[in-house]
């Protein structure tokens, strides 16, 4: 069941407004009449099992996917930046030039320097990407995205390839950067804790539709110890098809693994079309 966001009525003009978005790959519906809206400077986390259409939605919004099957409304800002799971830095450009890539204006280099300093990499401007660690590379990617002052920041599991400690550091960094630049953010993740730690709102995607849309109302230091945190976490895990009471779940298991195939109802629906 698709729930509409409450933000629609309160925000003056949402940064993103999508209604009835359909995307099919060879007849298989990956996004099925999807509705979503994101307010300016709102941080939305998008979670769902593998194959639920998270990355597809992000690629549509990022303008990377040009073959949308259909939609009623699809509004996204002009200025969108994407952070991928891998840093995707150009290996033949030094770190500074990677950040300044495609930046217009004569102050491009100065802005790139500032952005690098913001992510804590001042002094590494002239390094080659291969000389950086995975976490540092991802920080460069973050700087490359934010230096463009995007109205919408899209992040596709940006910390998925990092170790747990680095991931926590990156969470703090991302939160601080978003507080400063105030873009609307759509963060795709499979990590429930990451979603709760960072987002204003968590949207659960299932079979190409929004299955739930929850506001994160956990008070400020969102520590996993609080009751509200635990309740929200359990709710999200249940929505992902996991039983939070079954054993100890310190780490959310790979959601895709617990439910390997979700094709049965979809195929039936797809063949009707």
């Amino acid at each position: 069941m698709a729930t509409h966001s409450g933000g629609l009525t309160t925000a003056p003009a949402p940064a993103v407004r999508i209604t009835s978005l359909v995307r099919e790959f060879a007849g298989r519906r990956v996004l099925d009449e999807l509705d979503l809206s994101i307010a300016p400077d709102e941080f939305v986390a998008l979670i769902g099992r593998s194959g639920s259409g998270k990355s597809t939605l992000l690629r549509v919004l990022g303008g990377i996917d040009h073959e949308v099957t259909g939609y009623e409304e699809l509004t996204a800002p002009e200025n969108v930046s994407v952070v991928f799971q891998d840093a995707r830095l150009l290996p033949w450009k030094r770190v500074l030039d990677n950040v300044a890539l495609g930046l217009p204006g004569s102050d491009a280099e100065a802005r790139a320097r500032t952005a690098l300093a913001e992510v804590g990499l001042a002094g590494r401007e002239n390094a080659w990407p291969v000389e950086l660690s995975g976490g540092e590379q991802q920080r460069v990617a973050l700087a490359r995205s934010l230096v463009r002052d995007p109205e919408l920041l899209l992040a596709d599991e940006p910390f998925g390839a990092l170790d747990a400690l680095t991931r926590l550091r990156m969470h703090t960094l991302l939160k601080q950067l978003c507080a400063r630049h105030r873009p609307a953010v759509l963060l795709v993740t499979h990590d429930v804790d990451e979603a709760i730690a960072l987002a204003d709102r968590v949207v659960v995607l299932d079979h190409g539709r929004i299955a739930a849309d929850l506001r994160v109302d956990v008070p400020a230091p969102r520590s996993p110890g609080t009751a509200r945190y635990a309740a929200l976490r359990d709710e999200l895990l249940t929505l992902l098809g996991l039983d939070p009471t079954a054993g100890t779940v310190p780490e959310p298991a790979d959601p895709g693994a617990s439910q390997p195939t979700d094709t049965t109802p979809k195929n039936a629906k797809g063949s009707d079309l």
Binding site: R113, T114, A117, R169
Partner: peptide, 10 residues
Amino acid sequence: MTQSTAPPLV
């Protein structure tokens, strides 16, 4: 090369 125009947020 080490000029930093913004305080590092890290």
